[in-house]
Nucleic acid binder design. Structure first.
Length: 174
DNA sequence: CTAACTAAACCTA
DNA sequence: TAGGTTTAGTTAG
């Protein structure tokens, strides 16, 4: 497992990953120490649980490529951010939800209910809210693109302001 | 047991 | 038609 900090036009993005893929990726912080503070607990958690003792290929993540795409993203470009994710710490339900969210393209939004429907549980919109709330891999799993059906933002762990900013960056105004 | 990133079906007036 | 109530569904603490 590894961690690193990437500098983008909006600040320092902290992330850590295992041999299976990204474990955690945070929103930009104004300073490098802030970014380190952010990722610290997640990295410690990984070290402690050490699920992937046998996974040696930490090189699954192409950091240079990710760095380029994050810079492009915060410059307003429509990027794919198509990087492997380590799903192994999520429950089955969370995994199904997050994998659907993973495929929502740049600039598009869907409702909690639509995500619920696409995993075959049309009544589980509220549970979907809970599941996207457990997302640790921001931007790569674009949970900010999941909004309420009535056109309002819904919620967001890091604050609705962040969610609105990200959507603005993608040309979505609500 | 409840709070948390919802939404639709049902009343009721 | 608008407003209030119930219910479905998942999970961490």
């Amino acid at each position: 497992m590894k961690k690193t900090i990437i500098e983008t036009p909006d600040g320092f993005v902290a992330l850590c990953w295992t041999g299976l893929g990204l474990f955690s990726l945070k929103l930009p912080e104004p300073t490098l120490p802030d970014a380190e503070m952010e990722i610290g607990p997640d990295f410690d958690f990984l070290k402690k649980t050490a699920k992937h003792r046998s996974e040696s290929s930490d090189e699954k993540i192409n950091i240079k490529l990710l760095e380029g795409e994050l810079k492009d993203y915060f410059s307003g470009r429509a990027v794919k951010l198509n990087f492997p994710v380590d799903w192994s710490y999520y429950t089955d339900f969370q995994k199904r939800v997050l994998q659907v969210v993973y495929n929502i393209p740049w600039g598009q939004v869907v409702s909690y209910g639509q995500v619920a429907a696409s995993i075959g549980k049309p009544r589980a919109s509220r549970a979907v809210g809970g599941a996207v709330g457990s997302n640790r891999v921001l931007l790569v799993v674009p949970c900010h693109r999941v909004i309420a059906q009535n056109g309002s933002l819904g919620g967001f762990g890091e604050g609705l302001g962040c969610k609105r900013n990200l959507l603005r960056l993608e040309g979505v105004h609500i």
